[in-house]
Design a protein around this nucleic acid. Sequence first.
DNA 1: CCCGTATTCCGCCAAG
DNA 2: GACTTGGCGGAATACG
Length: 251
Amino acid sequence: MPRPHTHTAYELYYLLHGERVYFMNGGVYTAQKGDMVIVIPNDLHATASSEVAEFERLLVNFSPEFVSDSDRFLLELPPFRESTLIRFPRKEQSEVERLLTQMLTECKERCSHWDTAVRHMLTELLIRIHRTDLAAQNPPSSHPMHQKVSEIASYIQRHYKQRLSLEDTAARFFISPAYLSRIFLKLTGLHFSEYIRVVRIRESQHLLRTTKLKVQAIAEQVGFEHISHFNKTFKKIAGVSPLHYREQNKR
DNA sequence: CCCGTATTCCGCCAAG
DNA sequence: GACTTGGCGGAATACG
């Protein structure tokens, strides 16, 4: 199973067939044939297998800069505001698949003006995404445990400032600590405690970039009682020390 | 589900 | 003084 990760590109993940569990945006989604997972830049995401083992997908990554200036606004609107899953209607699917495969072959073969061609097709794809009815979408999860893990992940995102133990959280959601530990890892790719740390460090990164708060203050705000431990954890996850990170990301 | 063990984490202090 | 790094023992949690 691929480790959870982030990157600065948009990711479009289209399922040709099979079934796939996707963790992103703090929620668990089950993708089926004809579904497209949209991951916006810097969102933590991972995939896991579902009961159905086999699957085939088409994957497209692109940076916002790749989209022509005049079409960039398409990325500012709803389906691209946060990572999500959309389902194309039956009759749209073949067209979407055609677009995607064509884009991929263009990228591979690199005939003249391939980039312009791809840029065009991407725009068309974005429009198709916008046109699909988003209202009746998002069956957030068929599986009851997916729902539960989603709730737990979102609970962590809301309460990372306070102490969160496996035991207390499990009790709050009426499952055993051991089961929570196992199911959480399976669906998110991260251990329960690891996820908390990642959420905390990501928030601290945000604070380092956007405020002038002292490291000490930030550490406390995101739920670390001791700076020494915050520093260690930060470096392990972010790769550099807090102030170094702030320095690097001074626009 | 419970258990024992291994691993990792956390809070604390000390030092650069 | 603020930040960073390191070591240590007990606690939490991961593993099988």
